[in-house]
Each structure stands twice: as structure tokens, then as C-alpha cells.
Design a protein around this nucleic acid. Structure first.
Lengths: 197, 197
DNA sequence: GTGCATTGCGCAATGT
DNA sequence: GACATTGCGCAATGCA
């Protein structure tokens, strides 16, 4: 099954991994963009998606070189729903438990029906999500591999093209030289002919 | 800082992201390899690292198309160390609690000092690891971005090279044509000169 | 709203 | 022993 028949198969697969949606790719915070502007590459967020928890703060720090400090001494400490559940941490520490009388326009953080972590429905949804997560990550891994292989292949192809250009250039120089010689010789012949008359 | 001065800066950064260790890159299970065999690309495992828990079983299934089934109805259900700890799931389900009298040569699964999850040392180590994880993933993200940008850049360069080759080829054809014409004309002139004598 | 897909994050095992 | 990687599950969120 797909045992790389031709050398360009990698590129074929790679292209198929990026359905052209043309997001114009902001390329991500703190990246240099290099305005290539063709087939966005970035799946659909990664560039501006992470505004949850303390994410953007730490990310901004990283961008400026302030590296990987703990969230703010700790990010644990507020179980969101929770009913029983001996295990399962609630890590995430999103939306600080700011009292509902701050920001009066937003009603309290919703509380989301408080689904028991022991309920069959919860487990079912978790298991489904776990499967989806594994699938998605597998896909991502494959895409990364394809990109790497594609880069190597393009690099190889580049070298060949450079070589070809070298050959053509040299051949061109040779011909130009010959032509200039012919031209000179032609002029001399013409002069000789005139003088011999 | 590092605001891409030249168009090839991406490649510069990309190369620096892969210190040449030459693992010969097995490329990963179920991948096609495409034997390019140059700068391995894969950090240092990813290709054979995952043999923990039920990982390799599921991965084998995925390779064969049996996609993303739950571990085996469930992978939860045995807290490894655990002392108190109200939160924190023990998810992972590695080393089943097989009794120590099986496999007599291996002493019981080590039990690893049973560090309390509430101990300051545990938290310290967790926090350090979390920081390391964030750092590592950030690095991975950057590396992926660089690879993608590098691929795009190489693709662009490829197009330019192809164009250049087209130009050179055409120019070459023109010169060859001119040369052949000169050759014919020279022959005619020569014949005319001879006949006029 | 339901269901899958993505993604940041923490945990634990493992590699260096 | 410390740090780096990585598979995994969880929760939030995006998307159809």
C-alpha cells in the first residue's frame, strides 16, 4: 500500500494534505512570514487560535524571550464542574473564578449542566473524543512527515536544477565564444576579400 | 530580533534546527521512507519510541487500517502509586498490577518509592516537567513551521530555477540556430568565391 | 444542538 | 539527577 512508486509521490501526498483554503496565513505570532503566500500550510488555527486559559500571556512572554515560567506560581485550584469523581484533575485553570458582579454583562461562567464524570454519557463522550484526538494527532504526524520528506525532495531537485543551469550556462558560453570567433573571422575574411580585388 | 533580513533566512534557521546526527531515519512505522537519506529530520524518536502502555498495539492497528478503537473498552482503573490526592487522574494504565510471583526473575514493578502527589518535591518535579514540556512543544512547533516555510521557499526557488532553465534553453536554441545559419552562409560564400575566381 | 476535529495543557514513562 | 520527548487523556473551542 502506497509504497512510493515514483520519487515525486511524496509531493503528491503532501499537496493532498493541504486542501487549498487560502487563509492568507498570518504565519503565527512572532514568525517572519517570508511572504510566500501560497497554500497556507497552517491547518486552521495555530496562528491565532490559542486564547484560552493563560495561553496568550505565556505565549507572548515566550515570543519576547521570557521563557516558560509557571503559569503564575500555579494554575490549579478550581474544579469547574465536579460532582463525585475520585480521580480526574480539572487542570486548565481557565477563566479565573472572578466573581459574577465583575463584568456584569457576562452572565456567570455558564456552569454547563454540571455533567457527572461518572455518567455513562460523559464516558461515552470522553472515549469518542479520545478516539478523535488520536486520529487527529496521527494525521498531524503524517502531515509533518510528508512536509519533511517534501522539503528534502525539493532540496534534492533544487540541486539537480542548479546543476542543469550550470551545464546550460557553460554550453551557452561556449557557443557565444564560437560565435564571436566566427564574427571576427568573418570580418577578416571580408577585409581580405576586398583587399584582394 | 531575527526579522528575516534575507529571503533564505528560513532555510538558515531550518538547518540550525536539525543538528546533523544522522540517525539514518527509519522514517517511522508504515511510512514509505523515500530513501533521501540526508539530515534525518526526525528529532530522535517518533519512529520507534512509543512502546508504553497499549501504544504499539493500537498503532499497529492504525497502520493496518483498523482505526482508533478504544484501548480495550477502557484503559483506566488502576492507580499506580497514589497516597491521597483528591484530584489528578492516574491515566496511563501502564504496567498492569500483575502479581510479583509471575516473572520471578523481575522483582516487583519497582513501585518507585510511592511518592505522594501532595509532596512538595512531587509538585516541584511536576512543575519543572510542565515547563520542559511547554518548551519542548514550542520548539517542535517552531521546527514544524520552519520546515513548512522551507518547503514553500524551496518550491518557489524551484519554479525560478525551472524558469531560468527555460530561458537558457531557448537562448541556447537561438544561438545554435544562428550558428547553423552562419555555417550554411559560410559554405555558400565559400562556393561563390570559388566560382567567381 | 450534536458530533467530530483541533489544540493547549498536565501527567507519566522514557530517552539523553 | 535534571532536562527533553512523547503518547495519552481532558477540556475548551472550532467547525459543519
Amino acid at each position: 500500500m502506497m509504497s512510493d512508486s515514483r520519487p515525486s509521490s511524496v509531493i503528491q501526498e503532501w499537496v493532498s494534505s493541504y486542501p487549498g483554503q487560502a487563509h492568507l496565513t498570518p504565519v503565527g505570532p512572532g514568525q517572519s512570514s517570508a511572504q510566500l503566500a501560497q497554500m497556507d500550510v497552517i491547518p486552521y488555527s495555530q496562528s491565532q487560535g490559542m486564547m484560552r486559559g493563560g495561553g496568550e500571556d505565556r505565549l507572548a512572554e515566550q515570543m519576547m524571550g521570557l521563557s516558560y515560567l509557571p503559569y503564575s506560581a500555579s494554575c490549579l485550584g478550581n474544579a469547574s464542574n465536579s460532582v463525585s469523581s475520585t480521580h480526574h484533575q480539572s487542570h486548565g485553570g481557565s477563566q479565573q473564578d472572578f466573581s459574577p458582579f465583575l463584568l456584569p454583562t457576562l452572565k456567570a461562567p455558564v456552569t454547563k449542566r454540571s455533567i457527572s464524570k461518572d455518567s455513562a454519557e460523559y464516558r461515552l463522550r470522553r472515549e469518542r473524543n479520545n478516539i478523535a484526538v488520536r486520529k487527529s494527532r496521527d494525521k498531524a504526524r503524517r502531515r509533518i512527515l510528508l512536509t519533511q520528506q517534501r522539503a528534502l525532495q525539493l532540496q534534492e531537485e533544487n540541486q539537480k536544477l542548479q546543476l542543469r543551469i550550470g551545464q546550460l550556462t557553460q554550453e551557452l558560453d561556449t557557443l557565444k565564444h564560437i560565435l564571436s570567433q566566427r564574427h571576427l573571422q568573418g570580418a577578416e575574411d571580408g577585409a581580405a576579400g576586398e583587399s584582394s580585388i
